[in-house]
Amino acid sequence: MKTAVVCSGGLDSVSLAHVMAQQGNLSRILSFDYGQRHRKELDFARRAADRLQVPFHLIDMRSVGAALTGSALTDDIDVPDGHYAEDTMRVTVVPNRNAIMLTIAFGIAAAQGDDAVATAVHGGDHFIYPDCRPDFTLAFAKMQRAALSGYANVALHVPFVQQKKSDIVVAGARAGTPFAETWSCYKGGEVHCGRCGTCVERREAFHLAGVEDPTDYADPDFWRSATRGGGQG
């Protein structure tokens, strides 16, 4: 099944690309530049495509992203420290981001003859991001069947939607994902900050998965105080 993977360059989506490649299903990697302040992640997405020897499509959405104001990921707003399960993290929502990206991805997949589009949304995203939840993915898949009816049959593949990030680490490790070649931090510095929601979640996921974390964090121990139970599990 020829599958296009929507890939930000982060741990989840790069792991998904490696899982699809291991299964012999990866057809291409699609990434989106929407003016995100941490756009260095796109370099890691391109490296994944080169490593897995598939075409890389970088879609320029900067003009669209400029209109999606009010997010700490696109505007001059401080990215908050702490766990995703905190209301302060709602400032990182980019409205309709996944819906927009997936719509474009389905168009490309249909044009290129792919059978599916895969995205790495997972259970840890549900609290903050409405377009990462199971209800959204089911509705979107139904909408695309109608949108492409009679032209193409492209499925939406969301293997992690009911899983935890630690499950993704385990799956990625089994598929040989080079985790050091992924970028998660929303602050986009020289190294992962270790304090923003995605850094905390990343650090916690490796701990819960029992997999060595190769990431260089500016504050490698902050996650313990930011996670419930001090990161024990």
Rank of each mutant, 00 (worst) to 15 (best):
W183A: 02
A45Q: 01
Y217C: 12
L208S: 08
R195C: 07
V158S: 10
A152Y: 06
A171R: 12
P80S: 09
A49H: 04
S8T: 15
G82R: 01
C199F: 08
S15C: 07
I128E: 00
G107A: 09
C199K: 03
F56R: 03
R39D: 11
S31R: 07
F56T: 07
E201D: 14
V161T: 10
V64G: 01
V161Q: 07
H38C: 09
S166I: 03
A226D: 10
G189D: 14
G70R: 04
T137E: 02
H157E: 14
D213V: 13
R224T: 12
D33C: 05
T227S: 15
V154A: 05
A17I: 13
V14M: 03
R202V: 04
A155Q: 12
V154N: 01
V158C: 09
C7M: 11
G10L: 11
H18N: 07
A66E: 15
T182L: 04
C196W: 05
R39S: 14
A226P: 08
I128L: 03
R51Q: 14
R202C: 07
A218Q: 13
G124P: 00
G9N: 04
G10I: 14
F179H: 08
P214Q: 04
V14Y: 02
F106D: 00
G188R: 08
A152G: 06
T92Y: 06
T177I: 06
R203L: 10
L68I: 12
R46D: 05
C196L: 10
M101F: 13
V14W: 01
D87S: 14
P220S: 10
Q144D: 03
A155I: 03
G24A: 10
G210S: 08
D131T: 06
I168E: 01
Y186L: 12
T215G: 10
A21V: 15
A171W: 04
C185T: 04
I168S: 02
E212A: 15
P134R: 02
D114Q: 05
G210A: 09
Q162S: 12
D221V: 13
L73F: 15
Y34L: 12
M61I: 12
D221G: 07
T182S: 09
L138W: 06
F136H: 08
V91P: 02
D43K: 12
T215F: 12
H207P: 00
Q232P: 02
E86S: 15
V54E: 03
D135M: 04
R39L: 10
S71E: 00
P220L: 09
F136M: 07
K187I: 08
V5T: 02
A110K: 05
V54I: 08
H157K: 03
F44H: 13
A147D: 06
N98W: 05
D131Q: 05
E181F: 08
R47G: 12
Q23F: 05
F179C: 10
S8V: 13
H122V: 01
R46Q: 14
T119H: 14
G10C: 12
G124Q: 00
A109L: 05
Y217A: 09
T198Y: 02
Q163G: 03
H122P: 00
D216V: 15
F222K: 02
R28P: 00
R62Q: 13
T119I: 14
M143W: 01
G210P: 09
L52V: 10
R47L: 11
L42V: 10
V191L: 08
M89Y: 09
G233P: 09
M1D: 11
G189M: 11
D43T: 13
R174F: 03
